[in-house]
Write a protein that binds this DNA or RNA. Structure first.
Length: 152
DNA sequence: GCCAACGTTGGC
DNA sequence: GCCAACGTTGGC
């Protein structure tokens, strides 16, 4: 099993929105970065665990856990000219972009803030806290996962 | 293939 | 709102 961290802006779609979805499940779409796409398409498997991260908000940090319930499949909103994430280079015959489905698992009692993660000695290699990292999807090692969970 | 200009992310 | 960091675009 693999561990991940996925960023989202709560003003757009936060963990409370995920909880309210049918089956508490939502496609994770709209990713338009090749590195992140490769993780969505090639690496994520059903059952993988995901830290749900809120960015661009009052307290950026990890707010809970979700789970991959459907592995990579074509991001079809790239085909829709009226969609915000439309990409004319991607077609149903040759899709460029991928998405996965994530399901709510747990919401933490408090936000594990970015500040706190950055300060933790055992998390200095966490992709999220590395300088200049802007990827919306990051891998998390089993060791890092355990350390972060213990903060809750 | 180089690289300047521009756009986006996201913390602060 | 600012700006550092990084990705993408497009002229050459």
């Amino acid at each position: 099993m693999n561990y991940w961290l996925m960023k989202t802006e709560p003003s757009e779609f936060g963990i409370d929105d995920l909880i309210l979805r049918p089956n508490q499940t939502e496609p994770w779409d709209g990713v338009r970065n090749y590195q992140a796409r490769n993780m969505l398409r090639d690496a994520m498997q059903v059952g993988d665990q995901v830290f749900f991260y809120h960015s661009n908000c009052e307290i950026p940090g990890i707010v809970g856990i979700a789970e991959i319930v459907k592995a990579g499949y074509p991001d079809d909103n790239a085909f829709e000219p009226n969609d915000k994430h439309y990409d004319p280079k991607s077609t149903p015959e040759k899709p460029i972009w991928s998405k996965v489905d994530v399901k709510f698992v747990q919401k933490f009692a408090r936000t594990l803030s970015l500040k706190e993660l950055k300060a933790h000695p055992a998390l200095q290699e966490l992709a999220l806290v590395r300088r200049g990292n802007r990827l919306s999807i990051n891998p998390v090692s089993p060791e890092q996962w355990a350390v972060i969970l213990s903060l809750e």
